[in-house]
Amino acid sequence: MGDEVKVFGFWGSPFSRRVELALLFKGIPYEYIEEDVLGSKGPLLLQYNPVHKKVPVLLHNGKPIAESLVILEYINETWKSNPLLPEDPYDKAKARFWAKFMDDKCMPVIQKAILAPEKEREQAAEEACECLKALESALNGKRFFGGDAIGMVDIAANFVGFWLRIIQEVAGVELLSAEKFPDLFKWTDEFVSCSIVRENFPHKDKVSVAFKARIDRMREAQN
Protein backbone atom coordinates (compact mmCIF):
# COMPACT_ATOMS: atom_id res chain seq x y z
CA MET A 1 0.00 0.00 0.00
CA GLY A 2 1.17 3.50 -0.80
CA ASP A 3 0.72 6.70 1.12
CA GLU A 4 -2.82 7.81 1.87
CA VAL A 5 -2.92 11.58 1.41
CA LYS A 6 -5.98 13.76 1.91
CA VAL A 7 -6.34 17.55 1.80
CA PHE A 8 -9.15 19.36 3.57
CA GLY A 9 -9.46 22.70 1.83
CA PHE A 10 -11.60 25.44 0.34
CA TRP A 11 -11.50 26.31 -3.36
CA GLY A 12 -11.14 30.04 -2.70
CA SER A 13 -8.35 29.80 -0.11
CA PRO A 14 -4.80 30.70 -1.18
CA PHE A 15 -3.64 28.75 1.89
CA SER A 16 -5.36 25.57 0.70
CA ARG A 17 -3.95 26.08 -2.77
CA ARG A 18 -0.44 26.13 -1.32
CA VAL A 19 -0.85 22.56 -0.12
CA GLU A 20 -2.34 21.34 -3.38
CA LEU A 21 0.37 23.03 -5.43
CA ALA A 22 3.13 21.47 -3.34
CA LEU A 23 1.65 17.99 -3.77
CA LEU A 24 1.09 18.56 -7.49
CA PHE A 25 4.66 19.74 -8.05
CA LYS A 26 5.90 16.72 -6.11
CA GLY A 27 3.67 14.41 -8.12
CA ILE A 28 1.91 13.04 -5.01
CA PRO A 29 -1.64 11.71 -5.57
CA TYR A 30 -4.15 12.96 -3.02
CA GLU A 31 -7.85 13.05 -2.23
CA TYR A 32 -9.33 16.52 -1.95
CA ILE A 33 -12.17 17.23 0.49
CA GLU A 34 -13.93 20.57 0.05
CA GLU A 35 -14.96 22.28 3.29
CA ASP A 36 -17.75 24.82 3.66
CA VAL A 37 -15.63 27.37 5.51
CA LEU A 38 -18.39 29.98 5.35
CA GLY A 39 -21.01 27.67 6.82
CA SER A 40 -20.98 24.62 9.04
CA LYS A 41 -17.52 23.10 9.29
CA GLY A 42 -17.32 19.35 8.83
CA PRO A 43 -16.75 17.05 11.81
CA LEU A 44 -13.54 15.65 10.33
CA LEU A 45 -12.04 19.14 9.96
CA LEU A 46 -12.89 19.90 13.59
CA GLN A 47 -11.44 16.54 14.63
CA TYR A 48 -8.19 16.96 12.71
CA ASN A 49 -7.66 20.66 13.45
CA PRO A 50 -9.27 21.24 16.86
CA VAL A 51 -6.98 24.19 17.69
CA HIS A 52 -7.60 26.53 14.73
CA LYS A 53 -10.66 24.78 13.24
CA LYS A 54 -9.75 25.93 9.72
CA VAL A 55 -8.38 24.74 6.40
CA PRO A 56 -6.03 23.56 5.12
CA VAL A 57 -5.34 20.26 6.85
CA LEU A 58 -3.12 17.57 5.35
CA LEU A 59 -3.93 14.02 6.43
CA HIS A 60 -1.02 11.67 5.74
CA ASN A 61 -1.63 8.03 6.63
CA GLY A 62 -4.14 9.12 9.25
CA LYS A 63 -1.86 11.78 10.79
CA PRO A 64 -3.13 15.38 10.54
CA ILE A 65 -0.88 18.40 9.92
CA ALA A 66 -2.29 21.94 10.08
CA GLU A 67 -1.11 25.43 9.04
CA SER A 68 -0.12 25.83 5.41
CA LEU A 69 3.57 26.78 5.81
CA VAL A 70 4.07 23.94 8.29
CA ILE A 71 2.39 21.58 5.80
CA LEU A 72 4.69 22.79 2.99
CA GLU A 73 7.74 22.00 5.12
CA TYR A 74 6.30 18.57 5.94
CA ILE A 75 5.61 17.80 2.29
CA ASN A 76 9.10 18.87 1.29
CA GLU A 77 10.75 16.72 3.96
CA THR A 78 8.52 13.68 3.41
CA TRP A 79 8.75 13.46 -0.38
CA LYS A 80 12.28 14.24 -1.59
CA SER A 81 11.65 14.58 -5.33
CA ASN A 82 11.35 18.08 -6.82
CA PRO A 83 12.53 19.95 -3.70
CA LEU A 84 10.68 23.15 -2.83
CA LEU A 85 13.56 24.62 -0.82
CA PRO A 86 17.20 25.12 -1.85
CA GLU A 87 19.91 22.92 -0.35
CA ASP A 88 22.14 25.77 0.83
CA PRO A 89 21.27 26.60 4.48
CA TYR A 90 21.44 30.37 3.92
CA ASP A 91 19.28 30.26 0.79
CA LYS A 92 16.86 27.96 2.62
CA ALA A 93 16.61 30.43 5.52
CA LYS A 94 15.95 33.30 3.08
CA ALA A 95 13.16 31.33 1.39
CA ARG A 96 11.55 30.63 4.77
CA PHE A 97 11.83 34.33 5.63
CA TRP A 98 9.98 35.44 2.50
CA ALA A 99 7.31 32.77 2.87
CA LYS A 100 6.66 33.98 6.42
CA PHE A 101 6.75 37.60 5.23
CA MET A 102 3.79 36.79 2.98
CA ASP A 103 1.70 35.70 5.96
CA ASP A 104 2.89 38.13 8.60
CA LYS A 105 3.13 41.36 6.59
CA CYS A 106 2.04 41.18 2.98
CA MET A 107 -1.36 39.48 2.95
CA PRO A 108 -2.81 41.32 5.98
CA VAL A 109 -2.09 44.80 4.56
CA ILE A 110 -3.26 43.86 1.05
CA GLN A 111 -6.54 42.58 2.45
CA LYS A 112 -6.89 45.72 4.54
CA ALA A 113 -6.25 47.91 1.47
CA ILE A 114 -9.14 46.16 -0.28
CA LEU A 115 -11.61 45.43 2.54
CA ALA A 116 -11.03 48.09 5.21
CA PRO A 117 -13.33 51.09 5.69
CA GLU A 118 -12.60 53.77 3.08
CA LYS A 119 -10.79 56.12 5.48
CA GLU A 120 -8.27 53.36 6.31
CA ARG A 121 -7.70 52.12 2.79
CA GLU A 122 -5.27 54.78 1.58
CA GLN A 123 -2.68 54.15 4.28
CA ALA A 124 -3.16 50.40 3.96
CA ALA A 125 -2.59 50.70 0.21
CA GLU A 126 0.71 52.52 0.86
CA GLU A 127 1.79 49.78 3.25
CA ALA A 128 0.72 47.11 0.75
CA CYS A 129 2.81 48.75 -1.97
CA GLU A 130 5.83 48.77 0.36
CA CYS A 131 5.36 45.02 0.83
CA LEU A 132 5.08 44.48 -2.92
CA LYS A 133 8.22 46.56 -3.38
CA ALA A 134 10.03 44.28 -0.92
CA LEU A 135 8.81 41.20 -2.80
CA GLU A 136 10.05 42.68 -6.07
CA SER A 137 13.49 43.22 -4.52
CA ALA A 138 13.50 39.59 -3.32
CA LEU A 139 12.64 38.42 -6.83
CA ASN A 140 15.66 40.40 -8.07
CA GLY A 141 14.92 39.88 -11.76
CA LYS A 142 14.69 36.09 -11.53
CA ARG A 143 11.97 34.16 -13.33
CA PHE A 144 10.72 32.71 -10.04
CA PHE A 145 11.67 33.37 -6.43
CA GLY A 146 13.30 29.93 -6.44
CA GLY A 147 15.26 30.68 -9.64
CA ASP A 148 14.23 28.89 -12.84
CA ALA A 149 11.63 26.68 -11.14
CA ILE A 150 8.68 27.32 -8.83
CA GLY A 151 9.61 26.74 -5.18
CA MET A 152 8.44 27.39 -1.64
CA VAL A 153 8.24 31.19 -1.90
CA ASP A 154 6.36 31.12 -5.20
CA ILE A 155 3.83 28.69 -3.74
CA ALA A 156 3.50 30.74 -0.54
CA ALA A 157 3.02 33.88 -2.65
CA ASN A 158 0.23 32.41 -4.81
CA PHE A 159 -2.12 35.05 -3.36
CA VAL A 160 -0.07 37.71 -5.15
CA GLY A 161 0.67 35.47 -8.13
CA PHE A 162 -2.91 34.55 -8.96
CA TRP A 163 -5.61 36.09 -6.76
CA LEU A 164 -4.48 39.71 -6.31
CA ARG A 165 -4.82 40.89 -9.91
CA ILE A 166 -8.38 39.51 -10.05
CA ILE A 167 -9.41 40.86 -6.64
CA GLN A 168 -8.00 44.36 -7.14
CA GLU A 169 -9.87 44.63 -10.44
CA VAL A 170 -13.14 43.67 -8.72
CA ALA A 171 -12.47 46.05 -5.83
CA GLY A 172 -11.40 48.97 -8.00
CA VAL A 173 -8.10 49.27 -6.13
CA GLU A 174 -4.83 49.13 -8.07
CA LEU A 175 -1.93 47.84 -6.01
CA LEU A 176 0.01 45.65 -8.42
CA SER A 177 0.64 46.93 -11.93
CA ALA A 178 3.24 46.50 -14.65
CA GLU A 179 4.15 50.19 -14.31
CA LYS A 180 4.75 50.13 -10.55
CA PHE A 181 6.27 46.66 -10.18
CA PRO A 182 7.44 45.38 -13.59
CA ASP A 183 9.41 42.37 -12.34
CA LEU A 184 6.73 41.23 -9.89
CA PHE A 185 4.01 41.73 -12.50
CA LYS A 186 5.99 39.65 -15.00
CA TRP A 187 6.42 36.97 -12.31
CA THR A 188 2.62 36.76 -11.90
CA ASP A 189 2.33 36.10 -15.64
CA GLU A 190 4.99 33.39 -15.41
CA PHE A 191 3.27 31.88 -12.36
CA VAL A 192 -0.21 31.60 -13.89
CA SER A 193 1.27 30.36 -17.18
CA CYS A 194 2.74 27.32 -15.43
CA SER A 195 0.65 24.32 -16.52
CA ILE A 196 0.11 22.98 -12.98
CA VAL A 197 -1.19 26.36 -11.81
CA ARG A 198 -3.24 26.98 -14.95
CA GLU A 199 -4.91 23.57 -14.84
CA ASN A 200 -5.68 23.47 -11.13
CA PHE A 201 -6.66 26.98 -10.11
CA PRO A 202 -10.26 28.23 -10.38
CA HIS A 203 -11.53 30.19 -13.37
CA LYS A 204 -11.14 33.95 -13.13
CA ASP A 205 -14.91 34.49 -13.42
CA LYS A 206 -15.64 32.25 -10.43
CA VAL A 207 -13.09 34.16 -8.34
CA SER A 208 -14.48 37.53 -9.47
CA VAL A 209 -18.08 36.63 -8.55
CA ALA A 210 -17.11 35.23 -5.13
CA PHE A 211 -14.89 38.14 -4.16
CA LYS A 212 -17.31 40.76 -5.44
CA ALA A 213 -19.96 39.29 -3.15
CA ARG A 214 -17.52 39.31 -0.23
CA ILE A 215 -16.37 42.88 -0.88
CA ASP A 216 -19.97 44.08 -1.22
CA ARG A 217 -20.91 42.43 2.09
CA MET A 218 -17.91 43.91 3.89
CA ARG A 219 -18.47 47.44 2.56
CA GLU A 220 -22.20 47.29 3.22
CA ALA A 221 -21.50 46.33 6.82
CA GLN A 222 -19.15 49.31 7.15
CA ASN A 223 -21.82 51.83 6.08
Rank of each mutant, 00 (worst) to 15 (best):
K53M: 02
F162Q: 06
L45W: 11
S193F: 02
R217I: 05
W79V: 03
I215V: 09
A149D: 12
K133N: 13
A66S: 15
Q168I: 00
A156Y: 01
L176K: 09
I150Y: 01
S68E: 06
F144H: 13
E34M: 10
L135P: 07
L135Q: 04
N140K: 13
V70L: 15
V7K: 04
L176P: 11
I28P: 01
V209H: 11
R143H: 07
A138V: 00
E35Q: 13
V207L: 11
G27K: 05
K186M: 14
M152S: 09
E35P: 08
C129M: 12
F101N: 03
Q168R: 08
M107F: 15
A22D: 03
P56F: 09
R214M: 15
I166N: 05
A171L: 11
S13F: 10
G141P: 02
R143T: 14
M152H: 15
F181C: 11
K180D: 12
D183I: 07
P89K: 06
E130I: 02
G39C: 11
F162E: 11
P29A: 01
D91G: 13
I65G: 01
L176Y: 08
V170C: 08
F10E: 10
G42N: 12
Y90A: 06
G141L: 03
V7I: 13
P50I: 11
W163Y: 15
A66E: 09
Y74Q: 03
F181R: 09
A113G: 04
P64L: 12
